Computed example of a mutant assay.
Amino acid sequence: MKKVGIIGGSGFIGSHITQRFLENGFEVKVSATDITKQEKYEHLMELNHSDHLYISELNVENKAQLKEFVKDCDIVVHGGTPFQLDVKDAKSELFDPTIKGTENFLEVINETPTVDKVVLIASVAAWNTNFPFPAGGRISSDTFSEKNTAFMSDESHPYAQAKFIANQTVNDYIKTHPDLDFEITSVSPVGVFGKSLSQREDSVSTGLQYLIKNNLAPNPYIQMFYDTDVEMAIVNVQDVATAIYKAATISGLHGRNYLLSSETYTISDVSLMLNGKPPKHPAKIIYQNQKAERELGQSFQSVMDTLNQYSN
């Protein structure tokens, strides 16, 4: 039985990833920042084949803990970087754990002979830190794919900047280490929506769906979504988990980064669909997904089905 370590495996996306690997016969090790807080991961114990699930305490900035976590894994999925919109100190809350954590992670993996494959959960911000707004010099109807030049602005949200720099760190590492004994593949999902596997209320993705459904704006950043009726590209959390499983188990994908996206709707239409009403405008395809469809064999659910899953 192969073993996968999933950093962030009890979160909104991570729980679905954990489920995918368990149902495909893997032994799964999931990280917890504080193992005493069972409410953070107890929902995983209800999954099928949870007798093959192990919870291990991990602070990704602690290299000794990181070495212990990955030491006997065949595959490691890293989705443990912080995702938050309200930030007091960007350096300590976002930049250090995301960027330094990525540097530590790559160094530790390179010293771990059992690991054959690493999948890093990047973000659409690795391609455009302005998301959900257009990249600089572009308009909202312009399509975007992996062939476009990645865009970063110092005026973008600190979370997006941190994810962009972390992705560049990975790219630089691959270039400067041409003879690695393991493959690194990244995925970059757009706005990840859908139904959570847990009852936790601290997921940013689940919280964002709640805010949009009820037209709530706890900060100026979210208020800007409504003021501009921004066009939001969305992907189903289940599809993200499946794509990550495929990226982890298909060989020959070293150095690639896949955009994961379904359709794009205005925020006002997203709110309507979250309330069981039809959208007023047709869906657009802004962020392209053909590379993931072609190389991962991944299909993507419609946004209407995705939002219906959350609402129900």
Score class of each variant (00 low, 15 high):
215 N>Q: 15
190 V>Y: 01
60 V>S: 06
54 Y>S: 15
243 A>R: 06
215 N>I: 12
304 M>A: 14
221 Y>C: 05
90 A>M: 12
58 L>R: 04
267 I>C: 11
260 L>N: 04
287 Y>S: 07
20 R>K: 15
2 K>W: 09
244 I>A: 04
187 V>C: 08
111 E>F: 06
153 S>Q: 04
20 R>H: 14
56 S>L: 12
155 E>Q: 15
102 T>E: 00
215 N>P: 01
186 S>C: 13
224 M>Q: 14
194 G>H: 01
101 G>F: 03
102 T>K: 02
125 A>K: 03
44 L>F: 05
280 K>Y: 07
80 G>W: 01
194 G>M: 06
28 V>G: 04
227 D>Y: 05
290 Q>P: 00
227 D>E: 12
25 G>R: 03
96 D>F: 12
4 V>C: 11
45 M>A: 13
148 N>D: 15
226 Y>C: 10
180 L>A: 08
11 G>A: 05
272 L>F: 05
9 G>Y: 01
150 A>T: 14
181 D>P: 10
297 G>V: 11
258 Y>A: 04
175 K>F: 03
184 I>W: 00
108 V>W: 02
42 E>C: 13
301 Q>S: 15
20 R>D: 11
169 T>W: 03
230 V>H: 02
167 N>G: 13
40 K>D: 09
135 A>P: 10
228 T>P: 01
36 T>G: 07
210 Y>V: 09
197 L>Q: 03
203 S>M: 08
186 S>A: 07
251 S>V: 11
184 I>V: 13
102 T>C: 02
145 S>I: 12
19 Q>E: 14
137 G>T: 04
4 V>K: 02
250 I>H: 13
11 G>R: 01
85 L>T: 13
22 L>G: 08
192 V>R: 02
10 S>A: 14
255 G>W: 00
255 G>F: 00
9 G>P: 11
143 T>S: 15
305 D>K: 14
106 L>W: 00
177 H>D: 03
233 A>H: 06
96 D>T: 15
28 V>A: 07
267 I>Y: 02
135 A>H: 05
253 L>M: 04
271 S>L: 04
151 F>L: 09
205 S>K: 10
133 F>R: 10
146 E>G: 12
268 S>F: 09
15 S>G: 15
